[in-house]
């Protein structure tokens, strides 16, 4: 993996100079700033941003991630013909995508908080959780993007698969949870729901964020069970581990395929 750093250096430069990463940053910058101007406290802004972050960050990460890898395909072939091992190359490319995406998100959301002077009480820790969740979701969905791009030779298929993965995680999964809840409501569901939530990075991010706010009080008994779990060190550790695993596992599977792949 000795070449990872070298590849990363140039890929970062390439991605950061790209126009779309600027647009991505500006979108978050404007959105956050406008939310502040429309009279939000720090905490309210975080709460309003939450929905957008949970949808947009995974979508943009997975779409741009797949497109980027397809787009770079010929150059990857050229690099593979150099004395470079595939693991280095793959990780370098991943870093070259995930780091600018995560950074652009963090800057876009974080800067307005700085110049609106934190917006007052409570925003700090909530902002921290929002930033961390967004960054981890970026890493996870960029990893998934790379997996998709490695699995599907055909760009159209890969693009479709990327959107599908996003749709499953962002929307369909919650539909399944709702079906589980409505059909098994006679049984104690808190623990199974906890497990189900842990398995989907977007849901995990959403619930973890919700519990940072007063709004958690609206969540009744179920909320209390979740609150207690995520409030404990074990719960926090487990949530973090699962979110990180959502980056590591797809990346490793993708890497395995990448190492075996014919170009």
């Amino acid at each position: 993996m000795k070449s990872t750093g070298k590849i990363l250096r140039y890929q970062l430069r390439d991605v950061i100079r790209g126009r779309w990463i600027l647009v991505y940053t500006l979108v978050f910058l404007l959105m956050t700033d406008v939310l502040f101007r429309f009279g939000g406290s720090g905490e309210r802004v975080v709460l309003s941003l939450m929905n957008v972050v949970l949808l947009l960050v995974p979508l943009v990460s997975i779409i741009f991630g797949t497109m980027y890898l397809y787009h770079a395909r010929e150059f990857i072939v050229l690099l593979l013909a150099q004395p470079v091992d595939r693991t280095s190359l793959f990780l370098g490319l991943y870093g070259g995508m995930a780091i600018p995406l995560a950074g652009s998100y963090a800057v876009g959301v974080g800067l307005p908080f700085l110049w609106h002077a934190g917006g007052g009480g409570g925003g700090g820790s909530a902002l921290g959780v929002l930033l961390l969740t967004g960054v981890l979701l970026t890493c996870a969905f960029t990893a998934l993007a790379f997996l998709v791009a490695v699995l599907f030779e055909d760009r159209a298929k890969g693009f479709g698969a990327a959107v599908l993965v996003w749709l499953l995680a962002a929307v369909v999964y919650d539909g399944v949870i709702l079906i589980v809840v409505t059909s098994l409501w006679r049984y104690p569901l808190e623990r199974p729901l906890l497990v189900l939530t842990m398995l989907n990075p977007i849901d995990l991010g959403r619930v973890f964020l919700l519990l940072q706010f007063d709004i958690a009080a609206l969540m009744g008994y179920t909320g209390a069970v979740f609150s207690r779990f995520f409030g404990s060190a074990v719960g926090k550790g487990l949530a973090l581990t699962v979110l990180v695993a959502w980056s590591v596992v797809p990346l490793l599977v993708g890497l395995r395929r990448f190492r075996m792949k014919d170009f």
Binding site: S3, K6, I7, R9, Y10, Q11, R13, D14, V15, R17, G18, A72, R73, E74, F75, V77, L78, L79, A81, Q82, P83, V84
Partner: peptide
């Protein structure tokens, strides 16, 4: 592969790098 020079059919390089950067990237590698 240190001993091989490869010229693929078409040249595709990272769009936002300069030619000089592409060359220096390969030199680095």
């Amino acid at each position: 592969r240190r001993g091989i020079g490869y010229m693929p059919q078409a040249g595709h390089f990272p769009e936002n790098l300069t030619g000089r950067e592409v060359l220096s990237m390969l030199k680095h590698l």
